[in-house]
Write a protein that binds this DNA or RNA. Structure first.
Lengths: 148, 148
DNA sequence: ATGAGTGCAAAGGCTTTGCATTAGG
DNA sequence: CCTAATGCAAAGCCTTTGCACTCAT
């Protein structure tokens, strides 16, 4: 499974929020729509720019709630500001291309075979270290096609 | 090669700074010693705490210089504050265990075989995407042994 | 000597919070 | 209804910067 039909998204988000004891308000819907529409990790500045009806404080507070409810995840980049995207259960497991020149972030999917080997090797490694492995994060860092 | 003898470090740092047109001052030596001594990524607060003779502004400014000279690198974690460690040409290539509970970061080395497959697969992938791959970043995210 | 490096304190920028108002279930 | 969510403005926190002084070469 790589991604859900767009129509599924709101249902799944609503369910996750419900489980977390949170309401699915209009603003939260707006944020989810924005993230789903762009399909790439967005900075808070990006989000504010696209929807002037989202006050900063609401955006920040809602992103915290959405993240804690497992609906969006924070993407850590090479640069300064945080970025957010829909959680992987909504988009499918993927990784990121990080441009160290312009800061752009793009999603990328690696071959299943590699993914399996990673899971395998990292699982053993974590066990040996007494570490409870939740997930892995793999980023490709370099220069995007526009920044050659 | 996994790491250099401690005695090599200052020589190599001095050389890198020289090439970058930077001086190897007492404060910079202090920072390098701290990072080399701990052997784990340190937050700025950590560093300040250990050496009260390092004013914040000098620490911040020097970390910028050391990073630009390729001597230290910034480690991006799940959490709030940035962490710094010696660059990989001084420590050897490695990855990180990130505890999402307490924020601890620990270095870890993955099997060579996996590392090679990663390089291989990611190289192809980057090429296909028109992305100039500089390096990869692989983190294990979960709970450390103290946070079960 | 002389420009890079340093240190204090002040300014910046992003993020969080207090409190009164509004709206979701 | 009644509590969670919202919005404005103020406060916080980490990081950067201005400027005078000091040290490395």
């Amino acid at each position: 499974m790589v991604s859900h039909a767009h129509s599924d998204i709101h249902g799944e988000v609503a369910e996750r929020l419900r489980v977390a004891g949170q309401r699915y308000t209009t603003k939260r819907r707006t944020i989810i729509d924005l993230l789903a529409g762009v399909g790439q990790p967005m900075s808070i500045a990006d989000l504010l720019e696209r929807r002037s009806d989202l006050p900063q404080s609401s955006l920040y507070r809602n992103l915290v709630v959405l993240e804690e409810s497992g609906v969006v995840s924070k993407v850590v980049t090479t640069g300064d500001q945080a970025r957010y995207e829909l959680a992987e259960h909504l988009t499918g497991h993927h990784h990121h291309l990080l441009c160290s020149s312009c800061g752009a972030v793009r999603d990328v999917v690696v071959p299943d075979a590699l993914e399996h080997e990673l899971d395998n090797a990292l699982g053993k490694l974590a066990k040996r270290e007494g570490f409870t492995l939740d997930r892995h994060r793999l980023d490709l860092i370099g220069r995007c096609s526009s920044c050659q």
